[in-house]
Simulated assay, not measured.
Amino acid sequence: MKKLLVPTDFSVHADAALDFASQLARKHDAEIFLTHVVLTPVNWTKLSKEQEKLYPDTLEVIRNAKKELSLRMERLNEIGVRANERIHFSDGKERLVSYLASEKIDMVVMGSHGKYGFKAHVLGSNTYTVLRKAGIPVIVVKPSEKAFSFEKVVIATDFNEASGKAFQKIGDTIRFMGGTPDLLFVNTPANFMEDAQIKQLGKEFLKKFGMYPHEIHIYSAYNTERGILQFAQEENVDAVALITHGKTDLQQLFSPSVTENLVTYLDKPVISLNVTAFDS
């Protein structure tokens, strides 16, 4: 993983994500792609310089964005991190996923605005919605007084074979960050199974998709989110990872809303990867 995309709105929350990405970049000689999204009234890339003058407010936003990006690029240069900056113009027709593909971005690191609800306060919730379709790991972090650690990370899974390839990818991501992932199966009343059944599922799943040893934890809870939250707090894990599915009507696969709820309520980094990008 050599290319890390960091979306920024220039807040302290985005800067926390940039700090974390910088740690990874320095450790692994990776490159940071610092990106700011500017909402434009039209397709900005199609305008001539003369036509741009018809939108003075947007020009002012772009000028300020360039200044803020330059300040952060200076700091990255000072600490010896390879980086480049980019302003992404969005008129409602997202083109960010194609940019990720063209630049061969490996991972996204973005910030969260705190415990006030995902939709309103996660950094660039619309951007996050786009990014999670890209088939690369997305890591959401919150500002922390402690140094980020990924030694103890748990992957929430249902052992469904459809998530096998994504499981391998997210495992590689965790190891890239210095962690050793364990597995968590949340046993809920709606899809209750006996422990022996769950352990057998896990054994078969790891036999097919596991490349390293993994400890399997079983936790009973009323629903998936509640189980993950309680387990993460009780075991004091450093981060939580999960594989989501774009279709929320499949009970056996985690929906994207689970990730959003975890980001809102969990005071830990959350790593997500959408399994649909691995569908053949």
Rank of each mutant, 00 (worst) to 15 (best):
K2N: 15
K3M: 00
P7A: 00
A17W: 00
A17M: 01
L18D: 03
R26E: 08
K27L: 13
H28A: 10
H36C: 07
V38L: 07
K49C: 05
L54T: 09
P56L: 06
R63T: 11
K66A: 08
K67Y: 02
M73I: 10
I79R: 15
G80Y: 02
E85V: 07
G92H: 10
L96P: 14
S102I: 08
S102F: 05
K104S: 15
I105P: 11
M107W: 07
V108G: 09
M110T: 13
G111H: 06
H113W: 03
H113K: 15
G114F: 00
G124F: 04
G124W: 02
T127W: 06
K133T: 14
K133V: 07
V140T: 15
V140F: 02
V141A: 04
K146P: 10
F150E: 04
A156T: 04
F159D: 07
N160H: 07
G171E: 04
F176H: 06
T180G: 11
F185R: 04
V186H: 04
T188E: 02
A190C: 04
A190N: 12
F192G: 07
E194W: 06
I198P: 09
I198E: 05
I198W: 01
K199N: 12
Q200H: 10
G202M: 01
E204M: 12
F205R: 02
K208Q: 03
I216L: 05
T224N: 04
I228L: 08
L229Y: 09
L229K: 05
D238K: 15
A239K: 14
V240N: 02
A241T: 07
T244V: 13
H245G: 04
L253F: 01
P269C: 07
I271Q: 02
A277G: 05
F278H: 12
S280P: 15
